[in-house]
Simulated assay, not measured.
Amino acid sequence: MALPLALAVVSAGGCSEYPADPEKSLSHARGGQLSVGVVEHPPWTDLSTSTPSGTEVELITEYAQRIDAEIRWVPGSESELVGLMGEHELDLIIGGFDENTHWTSEAAPTRPYETPAEGPGRIVLTEQGENALLMDLESFFIERETP
């Protein structure tokens, strides 16, 4: 009798949405709005003009086109933007972060992406627990790197 009960528990656990999208970040962004925090860090992100520019801005713009999303750029400091992400106000944060950033305890880092100019090693921060967005963004990175 213990085996059927164990199978029922495992089966019930399998009914949840995978990958997780508890705040519906990916669902809201598809065909809607992607909110992106931007930290000044040339050449990845440049806030010296009215519209953000740089390698990561171009990367995220391309991703937004893929999911048919309009981007809401939110410039700020790292701590301000991580705070906004914790309040579910941002979907992503860009700013030339690498794998050694201390923000990985408060945000979920993507796998390092690769660009022809800079090579591998930079990451994008996403909201913790929003695995659907994280996985979709990482799939986009992999597709771009595949010749």
Rank of each mutant, 00 (worst) to 15 (best):
Cys15Pro: 15
Gly31Thr: 00
Leu26Pro: 00
Cys15His: 15
Gly32Asp: 00
Val38Thr: 03
Val36Ala: 02
Gly37Asp: 04
Ala12Thr: 07
Tyr18Thr: 11
Leu26Tyr: 01
Thr45Gln: 06
Glu17Thr: 07
Ser27Met: 07
Ala20Leu: 04
Pro43His: 07
Val39Gly: 06
His41Thr: 09
Ser25Pro: 09
Val10Cys: 11
Ser27Phe: 06
Ala29Glu: 01
Gly14Ile: 06
Gln33Thr: 11
Trp44Thr: 14
Glu23Phe: 02
Pro42Ser: 03
Ala29Arg: 00
Gly37Pro: 07
Arg30Met: 09
Ala20Gln: 04
Lys24Gln: 09
His41Pro: 10
Thr45Ile: 06
Glu23Asp: 05
Glu40Trp: 09
Val39Trp: 07
Arg30Leu: 09
His41Phe: 12
Pro22Met: 01
Ser11Arg: 11
Ser25Asp: 05
Val10Pro: 08
Ala12Leu: 13
Asp21Trp: 00
Val36Ser: 02
Tyr18Cys: 13
Leu26Ile: 00
Gly32Ile: 00
Asp46Gln: 12
Lys24Ile: 04
Ala29His: 02
Ser35Ala: 15
Gly37Thr: 02
Thr45Ser: 10
Pro22Gly: 01
Val38Met: 03
Asp46Gly: 13
Pro22Phe: 01
Lys24Thr: 05
Ser35Met: 13
Glu17Ser: 11
Thr45Asp: 10
Val10Tyr: 11
Ala12Pro: 11
Val39Thr: 04
His41Gln: 13
Pro19Thr: 05
Ala12Ile: 10
Pro22Val: 00
Ala12Arg: 10
Pro42Asp: 03
Ser27Thr: 05
Pro19Ala: 07
Pro22Gln: 02
Leu26Asn: 00
Glu23Gly: 03
Glu40Asp: 09
Ser35Tyr: 12
Cys15Ile: 14
Tyr18Pro: 14
Gln33Cys: 10
Gly37His: 04
Pro22Thr: 01
Val10Asp: 07
His41Val: 11
Glu17Asp: 12
Ser16Gly: 15
Glu40Arg: 06
Ser16Arg: 14
His28Pro: 15
Gly31Ala: 01
Gly32Ala: 02
His28Phe: 14
Arg30Asp: 08
